[in-house]
Amino acid sequence: MKQFLVALLAGALFGAGLAFSGMADPARVQGFLDLFGHWDPTLAFVMGGAMIPMAVAWLIQRRLDKPFADAHFSLPGTSLIDRKLVIGAILFGTGWGISGLCPGPGLADLAINPLPALAFVIALLAGMIMHRVTS
């Protein structure tokens, strides 16, 4: 129950941050990627802002034996750079540019602009299923 509430709170704060920062607006995200148009640097401020608490959190994490609401840390490796990583990032960036959406804003927008957000999220899940059945 405690873990469920921590995750719910983290998700809500994440979604609130996306909405507050303008990142729930696909045209604004696409504006950041539009170097040859009316470039909008807002996304860089969002990334920079998010780095600050997380940089502190990683420093704290090193000194902890376990997280405060779970038995152990379950963190991915940091060094594997393979074809899958590179091709996956290229495909993701292409879809991000085409739509102005990545998974977080797509899910957050389900509550704000449900119809187009749902179209994106259904396609997102279909893409994830395609990966699962082909790998």
């Binding site: 873990q3 921590v6 995750a7 709170l9 983290a10 998700g11 809500a12 704060l13 994440f14 609130a16 941050g17 996306l18 909405a19 507050f20 920062s21 303008g22 990142m23 604004r28 504006g31 009316h38 470039w39 909008d40 640097p41 807002t42 996304l43 860089a44 401020f45 969002v46 990334m47 920079g48 802002g49 998010a50 780095m51 600050i52 608490p53 997380m54 502190v56 959190a57 990683w58 704290i60 994490q61 902890l64 376990k66 997280p67 405060f68 609401a69 779970d70 152990h72 840390f73 379950s74 963190l75 991915p76």
Partner: peptide
Amino acid sequence: FPHAMPVEGLIGGLMIGVAAALMLLGLGRI
């Protein structure tokens, strides 16, 4: 960049960072 929202971006980014920190330090996950 007249359409940029640097202040809202920074504050919203801090919220996202705190949310991610909560997942990391609370549940040990990304």
